[in-house]
Design a protein around this nucleic acid. Structure first.
Lengths: 143, 143
DNA sequence: TATAAAAAGGATATATTTGTCCTGTAATAC
DNA sequence: GTATTACAGGACAAATATATCCTTTTTATA
């Protein structure tokens, strides 16, 4: 479904979004500990999220990462697209290069419904939604 | 969603299922041409499908592959599980090792519906269903 | 201004997936 | 029974994804 990289990215974004807004910045070390991911690799992923302006960062003492805009305005599909691209949303399930309504693969019509369901969910689920679930203790970011 | 290997497997199974039952066997070369896949690699995949008794094969002149049972009784989920295992059906979308109702990841509840939708579709779509679409010319196995 | 903290980025390493090549094995036909 | 055909299987190669290490850059503050 998602690449490992993308899973780390989503978890990291959620973790940063769970922090109170008073806490200005959070470091790589804390993030990778919180989501149980390899630190250096997670650093690369956060870099990419910063380039795509979903995260922001500052260097130096007390530096670290923070969500670039209001977590209510960032949806999961943006993170997925940033890391994995749009193949999950537009690619053919059976790998045909030019799969379309006019030239569909054998499962095109059946997958359409599922893809719509999936993308609809990812486009309507905000970081705020999921971060709140973690904050109230009904969902978890590791193990 | 599916690995490339799994896509080749599904396409190959569909192609073999499209052939008239009078045609007893079909060779690797023809299959990989029909689905536009690398021949040797496809050979490995077909081997695996034979081991899992979804396909059958015979060696020697006029040998080749054929569907092991009635295509109406083989569903897509069996092919997926044979090649990719059950992570698509049971694994956590965010990669948590022990994601469950009691210890859910932040998207667990939302993904449940999509996973059910997807697995339901794969468990109710038979090879016969999809092969017929190819045979009547409303769907395609390559390009 | 020197020092330390922390992210950015380049180079490299490891693991996994995807793909090829060659030999072995079984079946058929002459 | 020999030659030919076609799948089985092992060894290897290439490509991609995942992961680590080290240096550079930026910033805060003592």
């Amino acid at each position: 479904m998602f690449s490992k990289t993308c899973k780390y990215a989503i978890n990291a974004m959620i973790y940063v979004a769970t922090l109170p807004t008073e806490q200005e910045r959070v470091g790589l070390k804390e993030i990778s500990k919180a989501i149980n991911s390899p630190e250096a690799f997670t650093g690369k992923i956060l870099q990419a999220l910063v380039r795509d302006e979903l995260l922001a960062s500052t260097k130096g003492p007390n530096g670290g990462f923070f969500i670039a805009k209001n977590p209510a305005e960032i949806v999961l599909s943006q993170i997925v697209e940033s890391i994995d691209g749009d193949t999950l949303f537009t690619g053919c399930a059976l790998g045909l290069e030019k799969c379309s309504e006019e030239h569909p693969c054998p499962v095109h019509h059946k997958f359409k419904a599922i893809r719509d369901h999936l993308t609809g969910m990812l486009m309507t689920t905000s970081l705020k939604d999921v971060a709140e679930r973690v904050n109230v203790g009904i969902s978890f970011l590791k193990y």
